[in-house]
Amino acid sequence: MFGVGESPIGIASSPTEEDYLLFTVKKTGKVTSQLHSAKIGKKIGIRGPFGNGWPMQEAEGKNIVIIGGGFAFTTLRSLIVFILNSDNRKKFQNITIIYGCRNPGEFCYKSELSEWEKMNDIGVYLTIDRAHPNWDKKVGFVPTITKEVAPSPQNSLAFVCGPPIMIKYTLPVLRELGFTDPQIYLSLERRMKCGIGKCGRCNIGNKFVCIDGPVFSQAELNTLLSDE
């Protein structure tokens, strides 16, 4: 936003949606507030894309377990739309989606979610933290529901994106289910200013989330000096 500043935002649309780029933005700070109050037609600038994406080649022929929490679901939407595209769907085996939010109102892409729920060839498990009168689906934190759904680690990859606390407690569940660290991929978030590995704040150990990430396998994270 000229005159306001820049924010790093993941792309929520899939490469198969060729006509537009979709960004799902939570109103949080200066830049995102200005984006929210912008009128249709307002000119903004985009730099990028920076960094890597989900390891789609490695995922071919495998079962995909997608675990997301809160507003971090945006790049997972991109992933799901890509996988479900009619040209791509046959390249992947079973798809399991576990998506948790604090309350029913916080889910992004509600109409798409209900379409996905109707599909026979994917499992969609939506959960909220605490019981709510307008909610007849799962109740419980993402790690708990992951344990309950218990996706098989056989020929599977897990793609995880969510708040640090969700990641922290989901990892042991996945490991308990038999997922090895190279099978677990995380998309991480850090404060960023440049996107090109120069401004110095998004590092995890000697790697930069903006150029080496944001997607890391847990196996790779294990080799870095990190608190993760």
Binding site: K26, T28, P163, R190, R191
Partner: peptide
């Protein structure tokens, strides 16, 4: 502030 994220999380 160097690493403080919009969510409030700070590594």
């Amino acid at each position: 502030l160097f690493t403080l994220e919009a969510s409030g999380h700070n590594p």
